[in-house]
Amino acid sequence: MGYEIQEEKVFNSGHAACPGCSEALALRFILNTLGKDAIAVVPPSCIAIISGPQPLSSMSIPVYQTTLEASAASAAGIKRALISKGNNHTNVVAIAGDGGTYDIGFQALSAAAERNEDIIYVCLDNEGYMNTGTQKSSATPSMAFTTSTPAGKLSPKKNVPEIMVAHNIPYMATATTGYPDDLVRKVKKAMEIKGGLRFINVLTPCLAGWGVPDSAGPKTSRLAVQSGIYPLYEVENGETYTLNYGPNGLSVADYVATQKRYRHLSPEDVELLQAEVNHDWEKLQKKFK
């Protein structure tokens, strides 16, 4: 028993992620699955910090650090340059935070999806601007505390996975670090599909930002799945939906109980959140054949 995960060592030790950081863990699975024939684009985010201080890199592939809003365009530029040189094999992957994806970088992402650029775009979604000290992004879920929403966020999380599906891209998947085999499989699948923009949203709990212990990243990520807040699924060509892991009986209450960012919630608030999650899940469920 245990996970069967083949890794090609691309992600290096000695990086500067917080102890237990899920972004680092996600990077490990993503990069070590992509292998050495890849070029990565990273915008400002914790990922950029993890990438390493000059002259050191935590990634044994070329990494280009771009601006916060430009990841998709930057990745596309690399891919097109490679194509122009006749290189059709090197994978180009943008790895951006949720702020860089759902907010400021969304225009470039949507456009790259529309052009169907031959890149993989991975959003490491920690549900907030963490590198700048836990501010709200449009990926921050309802009622969560951030330093810019001290009373809790008033609007629900933007559903970027479904928006990406609406672009009819060849592949969209949600994944998270608590299910490393699933994440690795999705990265592999994205690599195999080629010929268009492949988008993977990876939920990566931020320990400090969410208020969970250093050891709780994977566990929290699983709670998100098991409580129905973050179902793991994949969609091909904007229409073929497959559910990988859905809710298994845990409730929103189970999920929020372990996180300090929800500690101001009243039982009524939790019920409202539960209703929101139920509603979203019902809507999504209809799409699985």
């Binding site: 030790s13 000695g14 002259p55």
Partner: peptide
């Protein structure tokens, strides 16, 4: 950037 972080002592 040419080096690797694996020389660091985290």
């Amino acid at each position: 950037t040419t080096g690797s972080t694996d020389i660091l002592n985290t």
